[in-house]
């Protein structure tokens, strides 16, 4: 009897905590909505928002440059990081000793924990000067941001890809080899194909990480609010613009409401990625 009450109390506390978690999480989104409402409630808010010009002084709040910046930088990082990560994953999965694989997982885990500002520092130190020397201009650019971000998400991609390749049973590789497949054929036709849900999941997690990254990008992208004209021109992303303008627009101003809208866009993007991962990337 006492145990029952005890268990009942514990259960009640756990349930309450879970409820608070739900409320806090939804509250976070609600707070963004609340902040965003000030702007969204205005007439012609949407046409203003999705314009391509950002000039708060003249009442122009087009966030298109930042959406473009986010998409371009993320895609750029993917184009560079995904092949590299696949190479890392394939090479590590080929290693035969368990100790070697164990070490690889540990090393990749440590590398995923390297802080953004370290990558930002490196970007300022090497990537920006390199772009400047190569193509002229300030060097702060979407390209520099893409390169820095690529290296930053590389360990995440590598770890996920490696683990999903490892989950492909050895018996399938042997089955393929026994039918006369070369190592390459087994890799493409069995390993990658059987690992596809895991690879997709890793891809989406990496995209989320790239899309949400702030500091590393902020330090090298240049912060220009006009629509970028090329890969080597400076720009801004949704996240970098939020951090740059937070000190400019205190809560309650119209500018801040637009930052809330940008945050909502990011959260919406994350939610979509989560649902996609659930549909395509569920690792059975």
């Amino acid at each position: 009897m006492r145990d029952w009450t005890h268990g009942g109390l514990a259960r009640g506390l756990l349930a309450a905590t879970a409820l608070i978690f739900l409320v806090a999480g939804l509250g976070l989104v609600a707070a963004l909505f609340l902040g965003a409402w000030r702007f969204l409630g205005e007439p012609s808010a949407l046409s203003n928002l999705f314009g391509d010009f950002w000039d708060p002084l003249r009442n122009r709040y087009g966030v298109l440059p930042f959406i473009v910046g986010s998409v371009v930088v993320t895609l750029g990082a993917l184009v560079m990081a995904v092949p590299l990560a696949l190479g890392v994953a394939v090479t590590l999965a080929e290693q035969r000793t368990a100790g070697m694989k164990d070490f690889a997982v540990r090393a990749l885990t440590v590398l995923t924990a390297v802080p953004s500002v370290i990558f930002g520092w490196w970007g300022l130190q090497m990537v920006v000067p390199w772009v400047r020397a190569r193509v002229g201009g300030p060097g702060f650019s979407l390209l520099a941001a893409g390169i820095v971000l690529a290296l930053m998400v590389l360990p995440t991609f590598s770890l996920f890809f490696f683990q999903s390749l490892e989950r492909v049973p050895q018996s399938l590789r042997e089955g393929s080899a026994a039918l006369g497949a070369t190592p390459d054929q087994t890799l493409w036709r069995v390993a990658f194909r059987a690992a596809m849900p895991g690879l997709t999941n890793g891809l989406l997690v990496g995209v989320a990480r790239a899309l949400g990254e702030t500091m590393a990008v902020q330090m090298v992208i240049g912060g220009q609010t006009a629509l970028p004209s090329s890969l080597t021109s400076p720009g801004a992303t949704l996240t970098t613009q939020i951090i740059t303008d937070m000190t400019v627009f205190p809560p309650g101003t119209r500018g801040h409401a637009v930052l809330d809208i940008m945050a909502l866009l990011l959260m919406l993007g994350m939610y979509v990625l989560v649902r996609l991962a659930e549909r395509w990337g569920s690792v059975s």
Binding site: G175, G180, A181, R193, A194
Partner: peptide, 16 residues
């Protein structure tokens, strides 16, 4: 060689 020498394993291992 493996094309000429087929193999059936102890545990069934169909591809997914």
């Amino acid at each position: 060689l493996r094309r000429r020498v087929g193999m059936v394993f102890q545990a069934p291992n169909p591809f997914p």
